[in-house]
Design a protein around this nucleic acid. Structure first.
Lengths: 167, 167
DNA sequence: TCAATCTAGTTGCTTCTGCAACGAATTCCG
DNA sequence: CGGAATTCGTTGCAGAAGCAACTAGATTGA
């Protein structure tokens, strides 16, 4: 056999072909895009992915509680908690206790935090755009719709926080 | 409920809307499907995701080296190494030194490993099928093609193993 | 031939993640 | 009112992941 290819013999009828298995392919794609972005967050701004998500959420919503960022099943609440602590320590985020409900805290960007947001956001969008540049606008809309529908379905299959679906 | 919505005021013109940001949405979707699957791997068979990938790869290719599983930029080689060690300890995988190149080792499933493979694979496929059941066959093909193209593009944007781009 | 370079795989270290237990505040309901 | 149950957020702990340094083997080329 050709050198090095000795191990490539394919089994007669594999049950699963990994390269065609949707969850695997989604993970690969998500991982690649994440690491392309993380490079920007991390190298140039010292932000982890959770920190970026907190920043961009606050850039979008003025203020929100930590809980608002978790329950999508996306980030664990402890992850949010630590990201917020780190951002507060760096002076990028402030917490203000909510006097109406003193369990929760309202979060907001400081001017320094907003400055970083305004520096990172365009670069993140640029990466997204380069990624999407291989698709036509029509295909982008299609993709968006497919992702939405799959996400809804996946949410039903995953067991996470959906303990109380209404029927 | 309306209670607790005090913090939802939207900023006039957010630069990035997280819920529309493709990398974010891909991560959410991939995370949800992963955790739906991980539940099967872990609870019923004690397999981590890397372990599952090793198993399914060996179910597909008879034998391969550890290196064959890493360089896609998917799993780090240390991750593969540890997954293989664990599987070997459990008697699911055997290593045999390659006499032609004694740096590498040929991996293969043991009968016990194959039994697990044959038990897990159909369940994994069933999850995939339930996930895809919200799409028509035509849409599934479209999705597949879009993922492929995005993945190729993402590979170019991400810096991972491409240390030797030709200029 | 032999030194420099490269590749396969392992392992120590550090960081991150998720879980589970917890404290504090609130809500529900008898 | 007052005790159970619930919710927000934090933190200790344990397992997992990535990086980098390393060993061992192979390859290249002078």
């Amino acid at each position: 056999m050709a050198a090095g290819s000795a191990a490539k013999k394919r089994v007669p009828e594999p049950l699963v072909v990994l390269e065609e298995f949707l969850p695997y392919r989604l993970n690969v794609l998500a991982g690649l895009t994440s690491s392309a972005l993380a490079q920007i967050y991390a190298e140039r701004f010292g932000l982890s992915i959770p920190a970026w998500r907190v920043i961009v959420t606050l850039g979008q919503y003025e203020h929100r509680t930590a809980r608002d960022m978790a329950p999508d099943g996306v980030m664990h609440k402890s992850t949010v908690s630590r990201a917020v602590s780190a951002l507060e320590k760096r002076g990028l985020v402030v917490r203000r206790p909510n006097l109406d409900d003193r369990r929760e805290e309202l979060l907001a960007l400081t001017p320094a935090g907003r400055a970083i947001y305004e520096a990172v956001a365009p670069q993140a969008l640029a990466v997204e755009e380069r990624l999407l540049s291989v698709l036509s606008p029509q295909e982008q809309r299609t993709l968006s719709s497919l992702i939405d529908r799959l996400t809804r379905q996946a949410r039903q299959l995953a067991p996470h926080g959906s303990e109380e679906d209404e029927a």
